[in-house]
Design a protein around this nucleic acid. Sequence first.
DNA 1: CACTTGTCTTGATGTTTGTCAAAATAGACG
DNA 2: CGTCTATTTTGACAAACATCAAGACAAGTG
Lengths: 121, 121
Amino acid sequence: MSKQLLPLLDQAADCHVPLVAEPLTAAQAEGLAPAFKALGDPVRLRLLSLIASHEGGEVCVCDLTDAFDLKAPTISHHLRVLKATGLVTADRRGTWVYYRAEREALDLLSGLLAAPAEATA
Amino acid sequence: MSKQLLPLLDQAADCHVPLVAEPLTAAQAEGLAPAFKALGDPVRLRLLSLIASHEGGEVCVCDLTDAFDLKAPTISHHLRVLKATGLVTADRRGTWVYYRAEREALDLLSGLLAAPAEATA
DNA sequence: CACTTGTCTTGATGTTTGTCAAAATAGACG
DNA sequence: CGTCTATTTTGACAAACATCAAGACAAGTG
């Protein structure tokens, strides 16, 4: 119920209106910026894409590590950033840890950038 | 014609498919990340929102400066970042410079995060 | 041409960030 | 319980960043 799926997006959850429609408040902007910042790194963007697009909805870290020329700690660091914003969630099952994309968070951000219903000139 | 409305989003313009649908290539991610990074700062997020939501579609820098507790050079810096990614365009008319949001760029990013047509489970 | 106002550029500074090596934790398997 | 693999945490360092003061540039006004 009061599950906190979107840690950093929480306070901003009340703005389902595109930022094109009305100016964000300073508080909303501070709540939303970390999510975009998390997407602002090529590695994290690919990580999220790999996770979100993977069949079954979840991916083992071991599979993610192989897709990059980066050491495991670096991948782990980026995953933590994504997790901190609520864009993904982690779930350990035995030896392996699986990451899953949080569509709710993606929808929030997508809607924020979308055009407001009507026109697109 | 070959107008370059989306400087940094240019190379990534060929991915109109949500990142949920299929994994981004490294090149696509590198092309897109700067745009999200530009949105990853509270000040820039508010700036974009102020510009995009303003009646008439454009805003004078002088109006933007007043909305923040920041010096003019700082605002100018953030506007330049937004401009470099193609999220906004600038246009000097006489004494004042007007900024305008580039809906094409916003649509691209929004679509990238959107769910792929069908389900939303 | 001088003066004023609006905007941007340059240079400097303290903070944040991406990356890795080394060490720590978590679980499986003898 | 010891050992092996998977993942995370810690610590360190260079690169990138946000911010400002000072100065430069643009354009309108006397």
